[in-house]
Write a protein that binds this DNA or RNA. Structure first.
Lengths: 189, 189
DNA sequence: GCTTGCTCTTGACAAAAATCAAGAAGTTTA
DNA sequence: TAAACTTCTTGATTTTTGTCAAGAGCAAGC
């Protein structure tokens, strides 16, 4: 079973037979460091799965880049509002390192529903799960200090802090790089 | 067409015939000020639509109440993780004023799918839309100051500030009541 | 090997926001 | 109507976080 199939299995709980039907639609795509999977304002007609490497989703607001999320192995990358609602993309999606993705375009994606019974139901559940994750993230911002948010992310995934430029993690945590630097110093020594 | 049908029409874009089939499942429920529609830890087996009144979704964290959202007329109230995934509820949902709701329980909700073709697809789209709203809210917290978040909410819905106790709006905006009070003074006078 | 960039850290300072405490204003209750 | 609550405001102060500026540490490329 490929990495992709393993994750689809975990997320969607489909049979092995269905699994191979789904994963057959995905095509490997390499992305060089710095290259964009998607640019804001374009049309997101594809969904990616991160096989290896690090990808950043961000948006520029008044000369600042706001990093919404960092995706590593096992994450899907997509601009949902664009992929689902055919609107122009709201996020930039850029490779921070060389990446290996598995990519499916929208027309093939629609074919999954024809092959897998109840696929729409599985999609719904997956998106609902993503919704609850964002709910948690909102609560973090309403109830935690910068330090607490840093500690929460650090305990959730220590490796990120070795692999990802800290300026992007700072942005994703809602603080400046200087503040993150000081918090790291404070909570280590 | 009832208020409920009007909103379902707007959100889901179904035919008039389907509309009345759907809305027939909803039953009117009155909620007295202070009463709970749902308590954290319970099982959320119903979905509500706010016909009138104000409802607060919140969670208690270390002796503080964090208000996640304030729902007024036209909003659905539900704990999605509990309603969809049968987990225990993560949010308290409480009436801030006397409320009129339309409520559907989970078993009736499941019947909608048997009556309306493509209902699961419509559900998926609705939840996806909710997801993108939360994405925006995350970006607000990553990129805006407390004052900017206050101004954004105020320009989006001025009425809220007359109808809802300010302490709850402050929490929902991620600031203390004192800070909100000062921002209001600052930006009016 | 030596620039040239980048990224991160550090320091000094400023601004934003939280905390603590007190009091005003408005509601509810007895 | 008065007392008891609750909510909101205000002031004084502290803490947290951001800004600006400089420099250290590395890595890539010439």
């Amino acid at each position: 079973m490929t990495e992709l199939e393993k994750y689809i299995q975990t997320y969607f709980g489909v049979s092995n037979d269905e699994l191979s039907k789904i994963s057959a639609f995905f095509k490997p795509v390499s992305l060089k460091k710095g290259a964009y999977f998607l640019k804001k304002g374009m049309h997101a007609d594809r969904l990616g799965f991160v096989q290896s490497g690090i990808i950043r989703e961000f948006v520029s607001i008044e000369d600042k880049e706001i990093t919404k999320w960092i995706s590593t192995k096992g994450y899907f990358v997509v601009d949902l509002s664009s992929f689902v609602f055919k609107q122009t993309a709201r996020w930039n999606i850029q490779a921070l390192t060389d990446c290996e993705l598995y990519v499916i375009d929208n027309s093939d994606y629609l074919k999954i529903g024809q092959v897998i019974p109840h696929w729409t139901e599985l999609e719904k559940l997956f998106i609902a799960k993503c919704f609850t994750v964002l709910e948690d993230r909102i609560i973090q911002h309403l109830s935690m200090t910068a330090e607490e948010r840093y500690l929460a992310l650090f305990s959730f995934n220590k490796d990120l802090f070795n692999q990802v430029p800290l300026q992007y993690l700072a942005s994703m945590l809602g603080m400046t790089p200087e503040t993150l630097s000081r918090l790291r110093k404070k909570t280590v020594g």
